[in-house]
């Protein structure tokens, strides 16, 4: 693989991670935070595929990528379920309202 492309892809991974972490710091809606987590997971999966590509073991990379996608889908589903439950019990999804545990 072309080194320029490689660096471009790596930059893409890092930027996506940056966007994701930024989103986690900025977003106040719980469901949106779960969405942002998914962006992070995409970045990680891309990173793994890229790693497979870099070490010329694309199938290994694919295998890891699939596992990550499936596993983190489960996490997202549980997260969504929790968010929905929060909405039901508290009537809001705002992070700020969800800060009774402090100090």
């Amino acid at each position: 693989m072309n080194p320029t492309t490689l660096k471009l892809c790596l930059m893409a991974v890092l930027s996506l991670v940056g966007i994701g972490l930024y989103g986690l710091m900025i977003c106040r809606n719980l469901i949106k935070m779960v969405i942002v987590l998914q962006i992070l997971v995409k970045a990680a999966a891309l990173g793994l595929i890229l790693a497979g590509q870099m070490s010329s073991q694309i199938n290994l990379g694919q295998s890891l990528g699939i596992t990550v996608i499936v596993a983190d889908t489960i996490v997202a589903v549980v997260g969504m379920a929790l968010a929905v439950q929060v909405q039901r019990r508290l009537g809001t999804l705002d992070v700020d309202a969800l800060s009774s545990l402090r100090g």
Binding site: L24, M25, V95, D96, S99, R102
Partner: peptide
């Protein structure tokens, strides 16, 4: 610093 706000918690990680 233990604000209880999730956003600040992420700030800790980053």
């Amino acid at each position: 610093t233990q604000t209880g706000q999730l956003n600040w918690n992420i700030v800790g990680i980053v």
